[in-house]
Design a protein around this nucleic acid. Sequence first.
DNA 1: CTGAAAGCGCTAACAG
DNA 2: CTGTTAGCGCTTTCAG
Lengths: 358, 358
Amino acid sequence: MGKNKNIRIKDIARMAGVSEGTVDRVIHNRGNVSVDTEKKIQGILEKTGYTSNPIARSLGSRKDYQIEVMIPNPKQDEYWQLSETGIDKALVEWEPYSIAINLKTFDLEDPNSFVQTCDTVLQSEPDAILTASVFYEETLAFSEKLQEVEIPYIVFNTQIDENIKKFDPLCFVGQNMYQSGMVAAEMMHIAMREPREIAVFHIHENVKSSIHLKEKEQGFRDYFTDFIQSDIKIHTFTFLDRKDSFEAQIEECIQQNDLQGIFVPTSSGAYLTSQALENQSKKDTILIGYDLLGKNIHYLNRGTINFLINQNPQLQAYQGVRHLVNHLLLNLEIPPAYLLPLEIITRQNYSSFMNNNY
Amino acid sequence: MGKNKNIRIKDIARMAGVSEGTVDRVIHNRGNVSVDTEKKIQGILEKTGYTSNPIARSLGSRKDYQIEVMIPNPKQDEYWQLSETGIDKALVEWEPYSIAINLKTFDLEDPNSFVQTCDTVLQSEPDAILTASVFYEETLAFSEKLQEVEIPYIVFNTQIDENIKKFDPLCFVGQNMYQSGMVAAEMMHIAMREPREIAVFHIHENVKSSIHLKEKEQGFRDYFTDFIQSDIKIHTFTFLDRKDSFEAQIEECIQQNDLQGIFVPTSSGAYLTSQALENQSKKDTILIGYDLLGKNIHYLNRGTINFLINQNPQLQAYQGVRHLVNHLLLNLEIPPAYLLPLEIITRQNYSSFMNNNY
DNA sequence: CTGAAAGCGCTAACAG
DNA sequence: CTGTTAGCGCTTTCAG
């Protein structure tokens, strides 16, 4: 019965004519081993293809791994609430393996709050960190510090230019934003009857300061101009926090423009636009948004929203933790990027996406 | 550092004034414990909310779990090849936990081959079984035997009526076929310009003997008749293995009928239909099929196939094993049904579905 | 019916 | 630099 086929530390110790302790030292590069024995053991290790038993290791080392997870305050935004769900799932899944997951949240609107959280997290000296990358510059600065203190980290949500010197996470978890814009455009193209004018709505967030919006818009535009070479007119409208509400601004916009389709790259923008569309009785306008927020599903069901693209924040967070665990516990190779599928959500399939995600 | 917050067997042994061995006996209902001590220990167990440490259990019991997995021969069908991929993934993932996964394949076309495999599998007395349910009656008979010998099993691929007495798997892994037909219809509806006549193509497999085809067709039809109350004409054509090839039969059919849309509920049917469509230069016909087979992707890329619905055979197999492991190793609650999302695949998003699925 | 004791494979503290 | 030793929490003989 026993797993006697697998070679144990004891076995290679015997083969090398040394003690288990010494073998353990070279396996974990703990030093204090002469070059000769080190080489000898290393050789046997490779020859036998030894792999350590993670179960035994976890039992033997009375180590509790601490993973810090940083996301915007879930109370501010349903999107991040979903993200928290995924973290909770990860939490219960790995609790029995002595992995503690500590959630730290920061203010979605305030970079300083993120910076403060970074400090707190650094002071707690965790074994690994998972952070949402919502603030570009600040995430970069944080990652630089993490490289210094050599804490492994994974970043999720928004891709950051990979070529930055001091940015080298274990892995990025997220989606290909550009391609996601292409998918949105494709669905709009399929659903539209007589396309003449369409628009991209940037609501609340400013395109300029937000890479993911820029990428999505570019993908969306490129589909029409390059891929199908249509001469459709594509507007861009930006709605920021001003004295008149978003709804009012949007209503005014759709009143003044005869749009057959609207693409809204932010998750909460879709339902705001829906409200405006319904108020203006423009139910024929094709509306494409993001994510399975409660209000988005409401309008999807009513037919006001035609499609949603699911960024699956739950899965993103869950997979982020998962990769960290694989790294910490199992020394597995972690892919530099883990891109989730671009899920197209409709009235008929959304419910199938709402339960089992793991 | 240690997980000293968690109560150990040693602790409750001390509390109950008995030895660890006795506690272990009541925890696992191994008998040989007086009613009094049993009750006492049981009480403490509940009061303290004791949960056993799966890591330690796995180390302590030198047990190698054997899981038998049964699928149709992957060489016969690319669909089952994908399935095998998922099993391989599971295999390497749980190998370090002393879980052995043994793949047994049978002939997709021959129920007897399945029955034989069942016997082989039963004789090996595995700890758990995962089987694809391609043959209705035979799967039922097998499950009956499994209940008798009390081997836990999970079934995936095709849902079997839950109300059958002797069919009670730990879990069913698959998709809601009916809803999947609805999704197909929805996409067809969105993509069609002037719908008058459409058809469901049953290729190779006969509807009558195949529940999943029946369900998918029903969902597809109900969408048009009930959900959007269209008076579109929906044909059903069945193409079986005869002297003239499938392609020839299909070509003849599309030549004689002016179809604006075709729904093909079997995965390999989609590319066969594509060929016929291209031969007849009917590229405007909306074609909806299933699954990310190489040839399907080829025609998706050419625009001949408009949409695919992904049944994600890899994930189905992987999740099946995963649930079995959760059951065996961690005593986790397993949901009676684990339904995968109904993924809509297009030219723009298919590649995002082809790598990370786990 | 019950307790004692030996281990699972690995880690870590401590001598030397 | 290296070996010995005592566990981690649970399972599993084996006596009694």
